[in-house]
Amino acid sequence: MALLVTLNGTQVRGRPGQTILELAQENGVDIPTLCHHADLSPLGACRVCVVEVEGSRTLVGSCHTPIADGMVIHTHSPKVLESRRVIVELLLASHSGVCYMCDKANMCELRKIAAELDVGLPRFQVRKHYYPLEDVSPYIARDLTKCIMCRRCVRACNEVAKHDVFAIAYRGFDSKIVVDFDQPIDKEVCRDCGVCIPFCPTGALSQPRETKTEKKGKPLVVTS
């Protein structure tokens, strides 16, 4: 049984159980996402993928809301775009990563979405999250100052790697992805796995930098 849905003014067909995000993707409509990942269970936490559904008091998360027959969806209305901007701005406001020093650089999904939504320096003044760099493990480096609590690493570890290394601790603004009793990551089970690293949208998880290898090429000399 096909469901008839109006997506940005166009009638499209969808399947029961399909999410708004899946329907949009199938029809070539690009909705930004952060906590969502096709290989992981939905979470709905970041709220970047919100869309407008006519008749709904609030915007709805497209990554977890199933379509319904007769639904009228706007994925890029002014209200939606403004909300997405504010959400990304909020994430940037407490994020203390410095883009020009970050290994993730142009690969960073947060940075990419911020650019697409035209979000510059956040207007919000809020304390930043500062945590010490965790570089004790030779296999994985963790810099939680760059973490945006999308929990993709937690789900990747639980659902894909089946290791249960990460968990969420504390509450509210202080919530944090922890290992055991909130210790720097250096566990037996973490060796050689690395499954979570590519799931991280920012530079919070990375492969430790190899500093001992010889770099070929000329030293950088600046001449005037």
Partner: peptide, 14 residues
Amino acid sequence: LSIGEVYGVASFYS
């Protein structure tokens, strides 16, 4: 459960 999971619950409630 993992230790982190139990610690996460314990640290949530005031």
